[in-house]
Design a protein around this nucleic acid. Structure first.
Lengths: 236, 236
DNA sequence: CGGTATTTTGAATCGTTTCAATGGAGGTGG
DNA sequence: CCACCTCCATTGAAACGATTCAAAATACCG
């Protein structure tokens, strides 16, 4: 547990390298890994990774594209968004069945890891390394969820939207993508549901932030204009 | 990783039993554990577990009492509450320094685990068990944070307060305490900060829920009156 | 039993939602 | 490649809900 954080490396052209790094296993002999990992699993917009009630078996690393998860219930509420480099399903380790449904927001590809037979497939040394990686990934995920809770816990709609844009940027940046220019993978309505606002409020605030010169919003294309005075807003 | 969830057992009179169960190590020989665990660490209201910037070294299991954590910054924002049976600091595994400050809300006691030398102190078999426990605990923590994010992501103040009361109850219940009758460890202002509301709004809504017969609030003593029609409110 | 911090109350202001209707983007098939 | 169609994004005005500020009452600590 004394090892430092192992970053998730996104390597668009080399799924094997990516997978090995993800698992902290860089040895050339990856035959054991092939028992538990499917690399470069393509997925279409709208397709489900898993549904509420399904048995828990796989983790998914988002390689390209992005995903959304919904809480079971009627109407289904937006629970989380998953950007490239992030892991879907790690929060369900230890549960027998998923309590939420995960869906692809765009066409993209995933890396799929079967973690139900790690003990049988890996040597003790490998298992320790993989467990350590998963523990660090779960802890990182928890920190990220705390950040997200702080975003939705802000008092005003303006602060929530500003902090949401910054949070997405930070998460893109954490995996080597630009923090200040990106494309929103989700609709205004999904943002609104996530933040506990009306869709119209999200729209009006995006417009207001734009007219103040803090961001440039062209439908789904976001640019956070430096210097990011947006940060002062989300702090307050 | 195929093992089912290991519940955290709260045993008020037997710290050793508690600790062994927590670590998934029930063998009578606990000499190795004594290198990494301090059992029954008493703590006073207002005392800090750690501050933002401190090196990350310990996890704390809340044995009795409760804790709060604040995001670094001015003014400091309420990040999380930690109830009996919950783990403080697990989200910082993999980080070198804490990014938030944890403080005891009441007099109580903690179980302290040094996880920086687990590799050196434990055998491979023990390490695998402890890592598996920590991974499941981190995943559980992430699920809990997702629930909390859903609470603060609700659209109206009334839904947020109702869901907050239910969420606390569920968390007490998960560790053997009553879900429908408990004492709030935190102030109205801390609830308000956490939920992104004004303290007066929290007070007024608690009163409104009381006058509708959904709960009984006497300062900090909460009773959720069955049948919990409160749940319908937080769903909507 | 004091003193202090927290909780509660009230009334005016401000922000957010709601509802209904228009405008624009993207996707599909001719 | 264009026309169509549908879904998503946007706008405006009225109604509602939450916040603010100031002040009083109550709980709690030592």
């Amino acid at each position: 547990m004394s090892a430092r954080h192992i970053p998730i490396v996104i390597c668009q052209n080399c799924a094997l390298y990516n997978t090995a790094r993800v698992l902290g296993l860089e040895s050339p002999d990856c035959s054991t890994l092939d028992q538990v990992v499917i690399r470069n699993h393509p997925i279409d917009r709208g397709q489900r990774l898993f549904s509420a009630g399904d048995p828990v078996r796989y983790l998914y690393l988002v390689h390209s594209g992005s995903c959304i998860s919904y809480q079971a219930g009627e109407p289904p509420k937006v629970m989380s968004f998953y950007l490239p480099g992030e892991i879907v399903g790690i929060e369900d380790i230890g549960e027998s069945h998923h309590s939420h449904t995960a869906v692809a927001l765009e066409n993209g590809s995933l890396c799929q890891l079967d973690f139900t037979h790690l003990d049988a497939s890996l040597s003790p040394e490998e298992l320790i390394r993989v467990q350590r990686y998963l523990l660090q990934a779960a802890a990182l995920h928890a920190r990220q969820l705390q950040q997200e809770r702080l975003v939705t816990g802000l008092p005003s709609a303006e602060q929530r939207v500003a902090a949401f844009l910054l949070n997405l940027g930070q998460r893109f940046q954490a995996h080597g993508l630009p923090a200040l220019a990106y494309r929103l993978p989700m609709s205004r309505e999904e943002i609104a549901d996530y933040l506990g606002l009306a869709p119209e409020t999200v729209i009006r605030i995006l417009k207001k932030l734009g007219s103040r010169g803090l961001v440039s919003i062209r439908t789904r294309q976001v640019e956070i204009l430096p210097p990011p005075a947006l940060e002062r807003l989300s702090a307050a």
